[in-house]
Simulated assay, not measured.
Amino acid sequence: MVARVTVLSVVDAIADDLRNEILRGELVPGDPLTEAEVSERYDVARATAKAAIERLVAESVLERRTHKTARVVKLGPDEVRDIYRARAYLEAEVLRQLAAARTVPDDAVAANAEFERLGDVSSFEIIGPDMHFHTALVDALGNTRTSRMYRTLVSEVTLCLAQVHGRQLVKPTLLHAEHAEILTRLRAGDADGATLLLAEHLGRARERLAEALGGQAGPEATTPSSLGLAD
């Protein structure tokens, strides 16, 4: 069997490293990131540093106004709600289609197993499998444009997940159980049950994060788990 090797460009590698620092909270919202700083730090040309910064600006991980220094994006309650609701619209329809076909994606099962394994290890480490679980569901639909649309949200969703997990707003054990139950309902062809649980799953995190960022939490923040689990 031939091993798959992924080759990253210098721009990709720098962007990945900076993105991970932002997700870990080493670069915090509002922190500036200049081309000169990135160029010196990674010993690369200014053009390469600029390309890495622009990559993160395009992903909405950094923001830059005209002729201004790029800064780590600062999400507020309204932005968080907008991001979560946009993903909910897409994911709910995906679940309906998967339930109709009783499709349980192997990649989603594997991602949730990895999530469970890392749940007690590191809040940063579980961001990846959490995001992978949801992207695996979308990709299982087999619609290239739907997957492409969802990926325009991934960087902003990941920023939200970093805050949810970093602030320990929802117990990983509950998230894992909800992931598993969503898959069970897909297997049973229960589209309504799967989408209702998704709404609960996303709504709880959305409203708790909105409150943590200075907003007023909606009722979803304190709604008891329909699975009867403590949170």
Rank of each mutant, 00 (worst) to 15 (best):
A3Y: 13
A3P: 14
R4V: 15
V5N: 12
T6P: 08
V7I: 11
V7N: 08
L8I: 05
L8H: 15
S9T: 13
S9M: 04
S9R: 04
V10N: 09
V10W: 01
V11A: 02
V11Q: 12
V11N: 02
V11S: 03
D12V: 03
D12H: 06
D12S: 06
A13I: 05
I14F: 05
I14G: 05
I14C: 02
I14M: 04
I14S: 03
A15P: 00
D16H: 10
D16P: 03
D16Q: 14
D17C: 05
L18E: 00
R19G: 03
R19L: 08
N20C: 12
I22C: 00
L23H: 02
L23S: 01
R24H: 08
R24E: 07
R24A: 07
G25H: 05
G25C: 02
G25P: 01
E26H: 15
P29D: 05
G30A: 11
D31T: 15
P32L: 12
P32C: 13
P32H: 15
L33Q: 00
L33A: 00
T34H: 08
T34Y: 05
A36P: 01
A36Y: 06
V38P: 00
S39K: 09
S39C: 08
S39I: 02
Y42G: 05
D43E: 13
D43I: 05
D43N: 11
V44W: 10
V44P: 15
A45V: 07
A45L: 09
R46S: 10
R46V: 08
A47Q: 15
T48Q: 07
T48K: 11
A49H: 04
A49P: 08
K50C: 07
K50D: 11
K50G: 14
A52G: 01
A52T: 03
I53W: 02
I53F: 02
I53N: 00
I53G: 01
E54L: 14
E54S: 10
E54N: 13
R55H: 12
L56V: 02
L56Y: 06
L56D: 04
V57M: 06
V57A: 07
V57T: 07
V57L: 06
V57I: 11
